[in-house]
């Protein structure tokens, strides 16, 4: 179980996260929703140990960072490194055996090509493959469905369900509400750096309603489209 207690994060005077307290249980899929700039990625970075923060993040079993796989919205790829080398590097960095990597290439990526020349979706699939092969306990997936084709989308959904069965902690963000509704056990609505609403499965409608209220429809006139 991961316990976040009164987590806050500021960049200068700009307070991005304000006193966030959340629990993430193993075997649960936890969704985080919110508008662009609400603080979702910053929260994920704090969890993954990429940002400093005020407050506490508690995880009993081990050093949190060493068992966390973080899928970035836009994964960074080194230039002139093949997909296969990228996977080897990621495994090597976590001291994980690197046999039969080809068999684990579930997204059928061209592993002999340079990874930085992959499309957005392919980069995401490669990075996801890497964190799966690493055998992490916690999976933080920042918009995993973004830019990915339909077939891979279905496969990612399957993978997430499998991680749930394996009692892993899964925390993900997405703007596709129907997908979140389908797979998440808990959903947290982050607004202006605060958790506005948390809901269990079957109660997500209240979050959707709140999110729809802050639409931009009335501002379209300002564009003076002709």
């Amino acid at each position: 179980m991961i316990r976040i207690k009164s987590l806050s994060k500021s960049y200068g005077d700009n307070k991005v996260l304000k006193e966030i307290s959340l629990n993430f249980k193993p075997g649960e899929i936890n969704g985080i929703v919110g508008e662009n700039g609400a603080g979702k990625t910053t929260l994920f970075k704090c969890l993954a140990g990429l940002e400093t923060y005020e407050g506490k993040i508690e995880y009993a079993a081990a050093n949190l960072k060493d068992v966390t796989g973080f899928l970035f919205t836009n994964p960074h790829m080194l230039s002139r490194v093949t997909g296969m080398e990228y996977l080897r590097l990621m495994c090597n960095a976590r001291h994980v055996g690197i046999d039969n990597i080809e068999e684990k290439n579930v997204f059928d990526l061209p592993l002999n090509r340079y990874a930085d020349a992959y499309s957005t979706g392919m980069k995401k699939k490669l990075a996801l493959t890497a964190i799966l092969i690493q055998g992490n306990e916690i999976f933080i997936l920042d918009e995993p469905f973004n830019g990915v084709d339909i077939h891979s989308n279905a496969l990612i959904l399957e993978v997430i369900q499998k991680l749930k069965e394996l009692k892993k902690v899964v925390i993900l963000s997405s703007h596709i509400f129907s997908t979140l509704d389908q797979i998440c056990d808990t959903l947290h609505y982050l607004k202006d750096g605060k958790i506005e609403v948390s809901a269990l499965k079957g109660e997500f409608e209240q979050i959707e309603k709140k999110m729809r209220k802050s639409g931009i429809g009335s501002k379209v006139e300002q564009l003076n489209l002709s």
């Binding site: 970075k45 993954a48 140990g49 990429l50 050093n63 960072k65 060493d66 973080f70 970035f72 960074h76 080194l78 590097l89 990621m90 960095a93």
Partner: peptide
């Protein structure tokens, strides 16, 4: 970008 990649990949 580079620091985040390295920090996320390797132990501290």
């Amino acid at each position: 970008d580079r620091n985040e990649f390295l920090k996320n990949t390797f132990t501290n």
